[in-house]
Design a protein around this nucleic acid. Structure first.
Lengths: 261, 261
DNA sequence: AATTTTCATTTGTCAGACAATTAAACGTCT
DNA sequence: AGACGTTTAATTGTCTGACAAATGAAAATT
């Protein structure tokens, strides 16, 4: 494990890469303890702060965990699906908000992926997942629900649908697509009538999954996808009419009034 | 933007979280310059190395970039799809290798997702993507090709198929699923006959996409999924028979002979 | 006016130190 | 001998102060 001391700068990035490659290649197995920071500093011929910066980079990716004390140190972390979910959602959210991905594009991707899960979910659904789906659909009918709460419940419903496929890889991949959409969905105002229609489709989907009818589940999911796109288009059209009618065009992405630093 | 100085430790993690949240919320827009390390150290009431550790965490996630010099500093980075691909692939690869995800599970997820793309690819395919698919299929017939090169070409073929859908969100999500499978695929020995069959299916898929026949593309993809699973099962069965026949059971994940530190 | 030089700012790196934490080693008492 | 408290060594977390390297802007020079 060597680094190139001639390279211009970013020794910590080089060290992080060397260790990361070792972890990915399997040369450093899970729960293996890395040498202490002092030892690594000596071996790489850099200072301890530089080694620490490298370790923090790896910690940010959940590749290692650190522990203080006599038997402490940095250990190769077993990457858990839950850890990966968080990063996936963060990354997906930023990708959507920073790259001006249209609602239509994100929505298309999300429903395409969900429809890929549906047949598996139909054949493997557990009572637990079905109960969650029905409970969320029921919650979505409560009158006092805010739009945010409605969207959160919507996400929970769809996560249950995806998790019902019983494939952790699919759940992981879908987590980003479904959850990253939530900020976009929050921008939609759901009228009582549109909520009713969505919940009806949710119920139909749950019924189809219950009956292990993959074909019906796909049909209802497709209908939901179409209807969601319609709702979004109405919102967009409404905004544009407001704009052209002379109102001030303030469209702060989220909270531009914060003074952070 | 505050941190809790009472918290036990990991000030750098708290600072990183504070800045990360500000970026995600949109309070820190793209290309915004963060204060200098010295200023942040003063504002958070910590030392500069602590601030630096926090910044390195964010840099590891491509959330910021840094630049030296008079007008340098740390800037909020516009997260690009290419940057996200890399992280996604790293994470997916580790998830598969560390969590003992079976080949069957990974394979199922991959083909389910690809089949979700196929209808979109069929309707939107460009000449460029089609050319790539055909070129890779052709490359896969070359006799001298190593198994690794064959798998790499396989990945390239499937990426072209996914990219043909023209949805960057899908391409991003699929990148992990498809590329992370490559190490697993590399473990399969492809006989001349199995290669022939795979290439025939690839060609059929390319033809279906060319003809904008989503139904046919789905059928051939399903056949490819089934065949890949069969091949994998044969390999697994072969290994187990070797084991039970008294041979040494050395199954190092990748390269256990490396002495890293 | 164009070019070169100087300079201030900022990140990258280093050295050394101390605090906090933790488990093991040690000693003491029952 | 065994249980229990104490010391100790190892390790990470943090701080201070310093210097090197890069870089753009300002100043000086031609």
């Amino acid at each position: 494990m060597k680094i190139d001391p001639q390279s211009p700068a970013d020794l910590s990035a080089q060290i992080a890469k060397a260790i990361r490659d070792a972890i990915i290649s399997g040369a450093l197995p899970v729960d293996e303890r890395l040498p202490s920071e002092a030892e690594m500093a000596e071996q790489f011929d850099v200072s301890r702060p530089t080694v620490r910066e490298a370790l923090k980079r790896l910690a940010a990716q959940s590749l290692i965990r650190t522990q203080r004390g006599a038997t402490g140190g940095a250990f190769v972390n077993r990457l858990r699906f839950e850890d990966a979910y968080g990063q996936q959602i963060t990354t997906s959210t930023l990708l959507l908000s920073m790259n001006d991905v249209s609602f239509a594009t994100a929505c298309e991707a999300r429903y395409a992926l969900e429809r890929a899960c549906a047949p598996l979910s139909a054949s493997r659904r557990s009572a637990d997942h079905l109960a969650t789906m029905r409970a969320e659909a029921h919650r979505q009918l409560q009158p006092g629900l805010t739009d945010e709460a409605f969207c959160a419940s919507d996400v929970a419903f769809h996560r249950a649908l995806v998790d019902a496929a019983g494939n952790p890889v699919l759940s992981y991949q879908l987590a980003g697509a479904v959850e990253a959409m939530q900020p976009l969905m929050n921008m939609i105002t759901f009228s009582a009538r549109s909520r009713e229609k969505i919940v009806a489709l949710h119920t139909s989907i749950a019924n189809a999954i219950d009956a292990q009818d993959a074909q019906a589940a796909d049909t209802h999911l497709a209908a939901l996808a179409t209807y969601t796109q319609e709702l979004a288009q109405n919102v967009i059209a409404e905004r544009q009419s407001k704009r052209s009618s002379g109102k001030v065009d303030l469209d702060p992405p989220y909270g531009a009034d914060h003074t952070v630093f």
